[in-house]
Amino acid sequence: MSINYKDSGVNIDEGNAFVEAIKDEVKKTYDKNVLGSLGSFAGAYALPSGYKEPVMLGATDGVGTKLKLAIESNKLDNVGIDLVAMCVNDLICNFGIPAFFLDYYATGKLDKLSAARVLQGIVKGCQEAECALIGGETAEMPGMYQGKDFDLAGFAVGIAEKSHLNKNQNIQKGQYLVALPSSGLHSNGFSLVRKILFEVLKKDFNEDFDGRALIDVLLEPTRIYVKLFKQVQNHIEGLAHITGGGILENIPRIFPDHLGAVVDKKSIKIPKIFQFLAQHVETEESFRVFNMGVGMVLVVKPQNLDFILKNTDGYVIGEVVDTHKGISLE
């Protein structure tokens, strides 16, 4: 008896057909620095000119258990945007300009239509982030994933001037914290979200929440801040991506050791979904798990504040202080 790979649950032909089907979609993200074509062993990208001392930066992330809600509701079109966002938003916090992106899609049995929907979201995310999707991996792993389950991982590479890597050392007492609004929950805290809404409160995906289906509110794609960063990078001293750990743990990551900040929580424009969730979570825990409506925090000198407020949708939520106690919510 002869057994082939397909008998074990892996269809090589299906994987090859998927790669062929997505090539034109992926090419929408290409720029002049992309070398070669999709399907090689590695993607190639020419180092952009104009840098004095270019440094390469890398960031990787996933979508977390937000992905489970997307799978259960069959709303797969935006999780690719989330994947790109979580990676490129980290890169800009080190003053890196995203150059290219790679993705990893692992599933038990490849569904070309579902995978294509996810890929189209990744393409949209890369276009918004102005980076090229130069490669990826689609893995069929029967026995590792059940039913329609799949997982995603993303990898972004960017370039920065070496002198900008330590720009946060210019952060000083008296500078302002400017919040850039999030588009919603982004891609953090969903294990707690799922427990509150669907285990404890027994909510339904299609239940109305502030004029929208609850599932659509939850799956609103993560905002990508790359274009805005390019506009303001010369007018800020630092920026923090508010992901897992929330405002309390992410802002201190960019401060010199002797500095902290006071945040006026009454000044934060908290969307209704966070207000609802916060009824079931202690205040400090809410600000540690969720972004509470703040997707990114900029550190701005007083003389640059007017420029930032006029050229972004940001608003002041606090200021830098001389303390070793991290972030104080008042």
Score class of each variant (00 low, 15 high):
S2W: 14
S2P: 14
D7V: 03
S8D: 14
G9S: 11
V10Y: 08
F18M: 00
D24S: 10
T29D: 00
Y30G: 06
G36Y: 05
P48T: 05
P48A: 05
L57I: 15
K66A: 04
I71Y: 06
N74W: 07
K75H: 12
M86E: 14
C87K: 05
F95E: 01
A99L: 15
A99M: 10
F100E: 11
L102M: 15
Y104G: 12
Y104V: 15
G108F: 10
L110P: 01
Q120S: 12
K124S: 06
E128K: 02
A129D: 01
G136F: 02
T138W: 11
M144S: 14
K148C: 10
D149R: 10
K167E: 10
Q172M: 15
K173A: 14
G174K: 07
Q175C: 12
Y176P: 06
A179H: 06
P181F: 03
S183K: 05
E199C: 11
V200G: 11
F205M: 09
F209V: 01
G211Y: 09
G211A: 01
G211T: 05
R212L: 11
I215N: 00
D216A: 06
D216Q: 09
V217M: 02
L218F: 06
P221M: 07
L228V: 07
L228N: 06
F229N: 00
Q231Y: 13
V232A: 04
G244N: 09
I251G: 10
I251H: 03
I254M: 00
G260I: 00
G260V: 08
A261R: 03
V262Q: 08
D264S: 08
K265I: 10
S267L: 12
F274W: 09
L277D: 01
A278E: 10
F287S: 05
M296Q: 14
V297R: 01
K301D: 09
D313R: 13
D313C: 13
G314P: 02
I317G: 03
V320L: 00
D322P: 02
D322G: 03
T323E: 03
G326W: 07
